[in-house]
Design a protein around this nucleic acid. Structure first.
Lengths: 354, 354
DNA sequence: TTGTAAGCGTTATCAT
DNA sequence: ATGATAACGCTTACAA
């Protein structure tokens, strides 16, 4: 008597308005919780009659298994982290979209975290993803050599794919745009037009993108037995700052021997370059040739339209996600693999023969 | 004997390389698991000596409590979902950033999901967030009247804040830019310049943004005892399509009585409008005045620079997150609240007196 | 002050 | 084919 009273009160009563649980489903269907689990997980040995009853009860209660409880049982969380510096950079937005499209398709959820270029933030995000049992991580590390971040990464229990970065961690794969080829062909193009004083405005050597660009630039010169002028190398870690493009262009235009062409490689540089040129009355392409990256509405529609090195950030994100999924499937052979996404020189009206 | 053998084998051995657990920490510190928990959760009654011992053990093992297990105990997951249509739309990117900045600060993690404007996808994301015990949701619903999505929303066990949308769900708060005022003042500006044939290119009436804009537009006319010409109202649900701005402008310019000004209100419209004008040799602002929204590098740097209705999408995201946090704190009074973020008319060179 | 044990909602291993 | 039960890692009420 009192037993049955208790068992009527104790179970997670429907009127408690909490989410339904397997137990309630089992009770309603008149079966055990094991059977319910077998039904939802499509395990063979269940009679069709019972299967139907359980399905009905599930429908009535609107029950969905709790992902949290499933994770407790050691299942994959189907959650992927994505750490990048700044969402307002349209390149990252596109990468995330590319990754998200692939991951959603595969039943994963994407968890984003901005580092704002702060390594400490990167560390704590990596830890956080670990605590939450993320299954994998896509990451654009700020400083490829930051010891603590690399440490967190090495300790991580999930596979990592680096986007646009090169890092000395055994378990990490990498996906990058081919900035070397892109810069090489852009520089060749300017040299072909007779330019000898070409300025390179770009990020520094602290990450792969900057290094590849510098290498492409100097290699194009070297091919013709030339050397770029050091004073025209405007390479700096502070490229992320808003006024970087403007300031560097002002400096270049004030040089005793100003450049005849500028290669402005980096986010939001175009804006500053154009402002500086207009302020000084420098005409493009008559006085100065210009190539930037990546492609944008601004580059396309400003007059004259600007020649750009174009690559698909969306594709970059896609490839990173695909590589990660591949590692997630066969957990054993995480042999290092590196994928390159092509770049393309899109010719417009901002370059002229000298 | 056999008992002690068993208890020596069973515990999660350190050499198993799994994540450490409370039990291992407790064992190493020579205390009980309850004590470990009390130390990490800063519960008062623990002696300093024990506290120190436990802290040391935690440090040695590098233990962090599993968020998953904590959630099982009914704790908040500190996970917020964000559903929007398209990450490549810089407005959403900024909103997400605004939200993320606030939420990270408060110890929450942001989980993103793109709907690509598909209500079914929205439904399944809402369900998914429920299954994963998200604590809250920021949402830009595609169709404010879609019954199934509204249903999922009503069933959801977490508070929801709508961004740029108006929805008839009791538990939902709302944050919007003041598109009514923005459009009103832009239209007034054009009327002040003597324009009578102003075209409105905008999204349809299926969401709040489109309706507010239309209302602002017609109210500005009404103030002067005028009525907008129906043929100049280019309002359509397919605004998200890439060529929408181009096509609508072509139509407008082909009219027997073409407009003397265009109000192009929506993402990526500027590009198409400019292309159409250039193709036809229509000069801005001599032949046609133009106002768009939101502000962008393109609007700022194209020549002539384009007058825009500006508002901060970042601020919109921030406000949404703040409203959500407020609801998360006092779970009781979810009385409906609605926040408006201001808009501002930024005058540039694309409008002329007629 | 500290230890013990129940329980969160699943899945999986036993029996039956 | 199905039911009972242990286990996942943690928090917390209760006992000591």
């Amino acid at each position: 008597m009192s037993l049955s009273d208790d068992s009527l009160m104790i179970p997670h009563a429907a009127e408690e308005r909490g989410r339904p649980t397997v137990r309630e489903v089992a009770q309603l269907a008149g079966v055990s919780i094991g059977t319910v689990s077998r039904v939802v997980n499509e395990i063979p040995n269940v009679s069709p009659a019972v299967r139907a009853k359980v399905r009905e009860a599930i429908g009535i209660l609107g029950w969905k298994p709790s992902t949290v409880a499933q994770n407790m049982r050691g299942q994959a969380s189907r959650m992927i982290g994505f750490i990048f510096s700044d969402l307002e950079n349209p390149l990252y937005a596109s990468m995330i979209k590319g990754a998200e499209d692939v991951l959603t398709q595969a039943g994963y959820l994407l968890v984003v975290g901005s580092s704002n270029d702060r390594p400490e933030q990167e560390c704590s995000l990596i830890e956080l993803f670990g605590q939450r049992q993320a299954d994998g991580l896509i990451f654009t590390i700020t400083d490829e050599n930051h010891a603590e971040v690399l440490d967190s990464l090495a300790r991580a229990r999930f596979p990592v794919v680096m986007l646009e970065r090169d890092v000395n961690v055994a378990t990490a794969g990498a996906v990058t745009a081919n900035h070397y080829e892109g810069t090489l062909s852009a520089t060749r193009h300017l040299l072909d037009l007779g330019h000898l004083r070409i300025a390179l405005v770009s990020g520094g050597r602290h990450n792969r993108v900057g290094r590849d660009r510098l290498r492409g630039f100097t290699d194009a010169y070297r091919e013709r037995g030339l050397t770029p002028s050091p004073s025209l190398l405007r390479i700096d870690e502070r490229i992320a700052e808003d006024a970087f493009g403007l300031r560097q262009t002002q400096i270049l235009l004030s040089l005793p021997q100003p450049p005849t062409a500028i290669l402005a490689l980096g986010r939001h540089l175009l804006r500053g370059v154009l402002s500086a040129c207009r302020a000084r009355g420098v005409r493009i392409p008559q006085d100065l040739s210009l190539i930037t990256t990546n492609d944008s509405e601004l580059a396309e529609l400003v007059q004259p339209a600007v020649t750009v090195i174009r690559y698909s950030a969306y594709e970059l994100g896609r490839e990173a996600a695909l590589l990660l999924l591949q590692r997630l499937e066969r957990r054993n052979d995480w042999h290092f693999s590196s994928i390159q996404v092509p770049t393309k020189l899109v010719l417009r009206q901002s370059c002229a023969r000298i």
